[in-house]
Amino acid sequence: MKPLTITICTGTTCYVMGSGYLLSLQEQIESACSRPIEIVGSSCLGLCKDGQYGCAPFVQIGSTVIAEATPEKIIETLKQQTARNPMEQI
């Protein structure tokens, strides 16, 4: 299975709000979702500026944006997406 990309924002706002800790979750997420994933850090995704997307830290999986991202929320989103789309990548 091709690894699914999880983009973690490491812009200043997201980093200050704790996204640095999300960068090291590879194993935890993989074992919870039993599928390969790839975690990439990104510069400011531009979601933190006007507050309309909620609060930092932001994580993006495909077209889904997770605000106030936590390991649980990331795993939850992945499970939902896999359930909706069991055969293919999202």
Binding site: G11, T12, T13, Y15, V16, S43, C44
Partner: peptide, 16 residues
Amino acid sequence: TDELGAMLVAAGIELA
């Protein structure tokens, strides 16, 4: 450090 981080965010300064 966290106060400095907060100040950067509040001042809209993107380190990158």
